[in-house]
C-alpha cells in the first residue's frame, strides 16, 4: 500500500491566502480530520489532493507511485460538489463509475452496505432525499476500493443510522490499510472521527 505525501501546498483565492506551506504524510491505516469554519479552504484542499483543482504551489504524491498527483484509481472522492446523475438509478450510477474505472462491481452489495433499500436502488436519483443522495455519493467513492478516501462533510444530511454506517465503513477501510482525509466544520464530528487533525483557521 502507498503512503500519501503532501508537500508545501499553498493556495490563495482572490488575493486571500487559504493555506501555505502545508505538508502532511499519511501512512496506510491512518486518517486525518481537516477542520475549520466555512470558507477556510478545507474543500479546496481536498479537491487539490483529488486533482480536481490546481494548487498555487506544492506537490501531492503517492510514495510507491512517484506521480506528480495521485493517480485516479488511487482515490475515492465524495463531496457536496460531486453529485450523482439524477436521471440514473443508484445502481446505474455506480455501474457507470465502475465501467469508467475498468473494474467489475457488485453495485447492489455496495448500496446495500450503505443502507439503501432494493426498491430505492432501482429508482432514479432525482426522487431521492438529500440523505439518500449522500449515501450514493459515499458509495461512489468506494467503487473499486481505492486506498485513499477523500470525504468532504461525509455525514452531512445523514441520519443516525447513516452516520453509524459511515463509521463502520471507515473503520473497515482503515483496518484494511486504507487512508482517509475527512473534512468537516462540525465540532461534534471532529471528536467522532478521532485521528490526527489539521485545523484551517481564519486568516
Amino acid at each position: 500500500m502507498s503512503r500519501l505525501h503532501i508537500e508545501d501546498l499553498s493556495m490563495s483565492y482572490r488575493g486571500r491566502t487559504l493555506f501555505s506551506g502545508l505538508s502532511l504524510t499519511l501512512d496506510p491505516g491512518q486518517r486525518v480530520v481537516v477542520s475549520g469554519s466555512n470558507g477556510t479552504g478545507k474543500s479546496t484542499f481536498l479537491r487539490i489532493v483529488a486533482g480536481l483543482t490546481r494548487s498555487d504551489a506544492g506537490k501531492v504524491s503517492f510514495a510507491s507511485v512517484g506521480a506528480a498527483s495521485p493517480p485516479r484509481e488511487h482515490l475515492g472522492y465524495a463531496g457536496p460538489d460531486v453529485n450523482p446523475y439524477e436521471e440514473l438509478t443508484a445502481v446505474e450510477n455506480l455501474e457507470f463509475i465502475a465501467r469508467l474505472r475498468g473494474l467489475p462491481i457488485d453495485a447492489d452489495a455496495l448500496l446495500d452496505r450503505m443502507g439503501l433499500t432494493a426498491r430505492a436502488r432501482r429508482t432514479p436519483v432525482k426522487s431521492y432525499s438529500s440523505g439518500m443522495r449522500q449515501r450514493v455519493r459515499l458509495a461512489s467513492s468506494l467503487v473499486a476500493t481505492p486506498p485513499l478516501l477523500l470525504w468532504d462533510e461525509p455525514t452531512a444530511m445523514l441520519d443516525e443510522q447513516g452516520r453509524r454506517i459511515v463509521d463502520e465503513i471507515l473503520a473497515a477501510h482503515l483496518e484494511a490499510g486504507g487512508m482517509a482525509l475527512i473534512a468537516t466544520n462540525d465540532s461534534n464530528e471532529i471528536g467522532r472521527w478521532g485521528g490526527r487533525r489539521v485545523h484551517f483557521g481564519d486568516r
Binding site: 486533482g51 472522492y77 460531486v82 453529485n83 446523475y85 463509475i97 469508467l100 461512489s140
Partner: peptide, 12 residues
C-alpha cells in the same frame, strides 16, 4: 450545472 463533471474528471 448538475455537478456531475467531477465524476468524469476523477475516473476517465
Amino acid at each position: 450545472e448538475a455537478g456531475t463533471a467531477a465524476i468524469l474528471r476523477l475516473t476517465a
